[in-house]
Write a protein that binds this DNA or RNA. Sequence first.
DNA 1: ATCCCTGCAAAGGGTTTGCAGACGC
DNA 2: GCGTCTGCAAACCCTTTGCAGGGAT
Lengths: 172, 172
Amino acid sequence: MQVIINVIDAMIEKLDKKSDRQTEVRQILMAYLESRALRKTPERFAILEEIYSRKDHFDVEELYISMKNKNYRVSRATVYNTLDILVECDLVTKHQFGTQQARYEKSFGFKQHDHLICLECHKVLEFCDPRLQQTQDMVASLLKFNILHHSLILYGNCQDEHCEGKTLVGKE
Amino acid sequence: MQVIINVIDAMIEKLDKKSDRQTEVRQILMAYLESRALRKTPERFAILEEIYSRKDHFDVEELYISMKNKNYRVSRATVYNTLDILVECDLVTKHQFGTQQARYEKSFGFKQHDHLICLECHKVLEFCDPRLQQTQDMVASLLKFNILHHSLILYGNCQDEHCEGKTLVGKE
DNA sequence: ATCCCTGCAAAGGGTTTGCAGACGC
DNA sequence: GCGTCTGCAAACCCTTTGCAGGGAT
């Protein structure tokens, strides 16, 4: 019986945490919009919420479709517009993984990381390496640059038995 | 007088070296085409030569235009096709510098390096850091990946007095 | 009431594709 | 001569833009 209670407590805590984060990013966006005298439209908050309820990486079309599927009417133009704003206020990160279309990911409250992409199955993994910071610092002072952000992508083949399957396309 | 001769010798050596490299990359392409039973068309060699006579980075349109300007008739389709082949045989490297269009650079006989881009003037600088190799090795063994290549781009602002000038667009 | 933001659809820009003719093999 | 490669232009895909109506302030 105690076990069940513990499980339920854990679930509640998880839900709270999730909703905490949703509240937190909402407030960050709110503050950003105010500071720039931009309007707090429902679309902007709905898109933010959708992004923070998703896992991992997504592209514009995936985000657009998943909102459509929830019967939330947004236009692609608004999705693009809102993503620009979210990238500006650091709530979302934009990536160019070597394909034509940009991919995005939520970035508030997640630790900074880089990406590893399988050229066969297009799976995207993440990793961290503090050495990169040293590289950045060195290059910044050597070449007199003020470095704002970076993109490091490693390309290769994973040793996943389910890989090789080029049937999986554009998934992560 | 001796000075002049020295200068001329140096120029000749330089020319020889340059032509050596042209010959060398030509032979690499030749071998690659043979190995894949692809045809040795004049367009392919002309594009290779143009690339190795250029400095730094370029995009498809720049390459296409510079060949046009030399009265060499090629189509964009052939430029794209040939670039794919040159990337496959490692004579050329393809980059996605965060913009829509791909940029390329010759890669045979040049040491491996990464890039630093000024967000204001779009200048592209290069740097090397052996630490990256360590990162790659670590990630490869940790995540069981066979890493084939990577892309590291640092974005920031240069402290060039000529920067800020957003008049310069897409230049390096 | 203002005028920014949205939705829609058309335009834009880079890349890919289809096809007929050319040419390497 | 066969089959691939080229040149041209149209198609494609993602993204941006223009415009009229709607809603935040």
